[in-house]
């Protein structure tokens, strides 16, 4: 067994310090070390998006990041999307539109959608579909997911206008 490294990072706004093996991915660190199991493993290969997190403002597959690489970095996971005031508009719209069935891809899809709206607040349907191409969903056919994201974008821009 290998030695462990101490890593400091900011996760969902909180400073954390953890021990990890160099071979542990950020996904393993989140789930097994920090017990933040909201981030899901679907393929462990960068092909499904279930493990997506936002790393320094950039959407990444946490299965393709080593835990030791996040020293000093800031990470947002599904557990950090809602605020103490309540659900994020995306989360609310996913519930209202029934944009989830089994729910396993949902955390990754929501994190991706948040990264999208952070960057492009008014995406077209095509842009949403393009941005989500790395998030596989096997239950919904994406229809209600795309509707929910477009609706959330509308609501958020209406809030900004207010």
């Amino acid at each position: 067994m290998s030695n462990k490294t101490v890593v400091q990072a900011t996760i969902n706004g909180e400073e954390v310090e953890f021990l990890c093996e160099t071979r542990q991915s950020l996904l393993e660190v989140l789930r097994d070390v920090l017990r933040l199991t909201g981030t899901k493993e679907g393929c462990n290969n960068g092909n499904c998006g279930a493990c997506n997190v936002i790393l320094e403002g950039v959407l990444v597959n946490s299965c393709l990041v080593l835990g030791v690489e996040v020293q000093g970095k800031s990470i947002t996971t599904i557990e950090g999307i809602a605020s103490p005031q309540g659900l994020h508009p995306l989360q609310q719209k996913f519930l209202e539109h029934a944009a989830l069935q089994c729910g396993i891809c949902t955390p990754g899809v929501l994190v991706s959608a948040k990264a999208l709206l952070d960057r492009h607040p008014h995406p077209s349907e095509h842009e949403v579909r393009h941005w989500l191409a790395g998030n596989l969903c096997r239950c919904t056919g994406y229809d209600k997911i795309v509707h929910a994201i477009l609706d959330a974008a509308d609501v958020m821009s209406a809030e900004v206008t207010k």
Binding site: R31, D32, R35, L36, T37, G38, T39, K40, E41, T77, I78, E79, I81, A82, L87, Q91, F94, L95, E96, A98, L100, G103, I104, T106, P107, L110
Partner: peptide, 22 residues
């Protein structure tokens, strides 16, 4: 079309799937 009861846990990452048991 009420909101599903297990929905909030599933959009916040709290829902426990099989591999989430620690």
């Amino acid at each position: 079309r009420p909101i599903r009861h297990d929905g909030p846990d599933k959009v916040t990452g709290r829902a426990l799937f099989g591999a989430d048991i620690r």
